[in-house]
Nucleic acid binder design. Sequence first.
DNA 1: TATTATATTGAAACCGATTGCAGTATTTTG
DNA 2: CAAAATACTGCAATCGGTTTCAATATAATA
Lengths: 340, 340
Amino acid sequence: MEKETTIYDIAKGLGVSPATVSRALNNSPVVNKETRQKVFDTATEMGYRSNMFASNLRRKRTHTLGVIVPRLNSHFMSSVIAGMEKVANEAGYNLLISQSLETAKKEAANVMAMFNSRVDGLLVSLAYNTEDISHFSPFIKKGIPLLFFDRVAEHPKCTSIVIDNMQAAHKATSHLVAQGCTNIVHITGNLKRNVYADRLKGYKYALIDNELPFDDSFIISNDLSEEAGMEAAGEILKMNPLPDGVFVANDACAVGCMKILKQAGISIPKDIAIVGFNNDPVSRVIEPNLTTVNNPGHKMGEVAVRNLIIHLDGFSDIVAMNTITLNSELIIRESSLRKG
Amino acid sequence: MEKETTIYDIAKGLGVSPATVSRALNNSPVVNKETRQKVFDTATEMGYRSNMFASNLRRKRTHTLGVIVPRLNSHFMSSVIAGMEKVANEAGYNLLISQSLETAKKEAANVMAMFNSRVDGLLVSLAYNTEDISHFSPFIKKGIPLLFFDRVAEHPKCTSIVIDNMQAAHKATSHLVAQGCTNIVHITGNLKRNVYADRLKGYKYALIDNELPFDDSFIISNDLSEEAGMEAAGEILKMNPLPDGVFVANDACAVGCMKILKQAGISIPKDIAIVGFNNDPVSRVIEPNLTTVNNPGHKMGEVAVRNLIIHLDGFSDIVAMNTITLNSELIIRESSLRKG
DNA sequence: TATTATATTGAAACCGATTGCAGTATTTTG
DNA sequence: CAAAATACTGCAATCGGTTTCAATATAATA
């Protein structure tokens, strides 16, 4: 196990000082071009690699971004992460990723771990049951940039990256109405999370705008898992009269719901039209194919990291914009098409 | 932006030396229990957090594991990552994750990045077109543990975590035979990757063991995407006589294949029985539900990281086992059930 | 030619935790 | 009571870059 070469070795081998080597390796303009070239040459020759700890210790920058997500293994989230990784990698940043497994407790623990790892910035999508964001205060106090995406929290110092959930839900619901639905059930998650609260609002306003009654008893709230969707379908089947449309806040739950409805002999979309949310791969597999809202996860990840890095590199000391909204669009498939 | 507190601050505030503070914080047995308690108290009181760079610089350990995967946004891979994250987090390790996007070039770049980040160990699943593993030599030369999972490479110094792909494929194929199939097509990926080569072997030996002919023209090789599956279905439809079974090396491709076959009026499983691989969520959504091999991604991630950490913590200086094989099982669903 | 500006380099002090070695105080043993 | 063992604690070097400040050499200007 040979020893690591350091700038001191390079310096000795070249008869210059470590200071010069350091400057040369960092492309400092003050060092002579020939010297720099010589340094680079011997560096590669000796198999030198920079010791990031020494560097970080001195510079107090880690070039590492923390990411906390509820779960890694959903299509949407892994797309987000993929987008983040792409941009971060290109910009020379590392990603430290952890999952809260949907609990506020683990989220708080992860936040502290990230804090102790001294990440340069933190990207967060909140857990299902996070009540308040006081556990992020170490970051806010220290002025370390904190950025929320998808499941966001309001905070004057934090940027949020979202889609317009209300508008998307409005479109989805209006689409159902346009297809002739008048009794539309909405299945949603924890209303403390903006994404679900906003989708509910969009649903509600769409009904109102279309002069349909809004009825609390048409709202089913659960954890949006596939199993929960199956249970929700059971409830729907008991309703009298039977609803003729269902807008579900994610695709997994919509799929579970569809499975049971189909088993019960309901024809989709003829008896009940269904719209999901996220555009997960399953939405193009279930039969009939699921109408859904495309949630641009990959792009969201890219935008989030790019934004954070720009901020870190000091190019936008201006007032960081507080909310960035990405476009999403309704993808209409057979599960909701009752006309033409 | 208040200044960071260091062990020096704690030392000063307590009238002891930094050395004692360091030892106390690391639970060294030599320091007096009362002293230790006092150190811990003032540490929390002053809002101390350890500076990992200083510590890493001195100890030459990063407590960070590198992970390189082909893509993050597949169900299998995100499950693996989730499992890894769980174990790593519990053991106080960080995860540095990057994706090769299935190209050997980016894989090599990521390896170097990991090397320069001085990860304590590296976990890799190879890219689609990686030809040799010479780009890992910096790790091997330096004796930094390198562990492959799923898509592995043979190397005397590296541990591999896999499932028994050959056996799984053998079971899958034999199952098709047991269902009365005699003309079985196999759709596979790049045969340089063990997973696909082994699945092909399993398919082949199953045919032989069941006294069916093995025919090269029944092998379709592509990139296993859903689109590729659709194209493959086109080829299958042109075959004369029409095959009565298809074993596909992953679920996404199997799904694409099924879509086209169904469109063409083929009845699954009556005309053609189908088996996939991985047990992706789509396999329980497509109709008929897809028979597939359960690939325990989450567990694979857990085992990989646990193994690596045990190795790093020096508990298994013995001869590290070279291959760990996890169990997988065939999950039989309607897409292949022609009897009983 | 003397003076000033410019270019390039080096010495040494950091950054913050860890650890070998030595020192002191207290307790145990002979 | 002296000698030896035990229990803590502190000093100071170390890890490997970065950066301030001063020094020297060379070129430009008066």
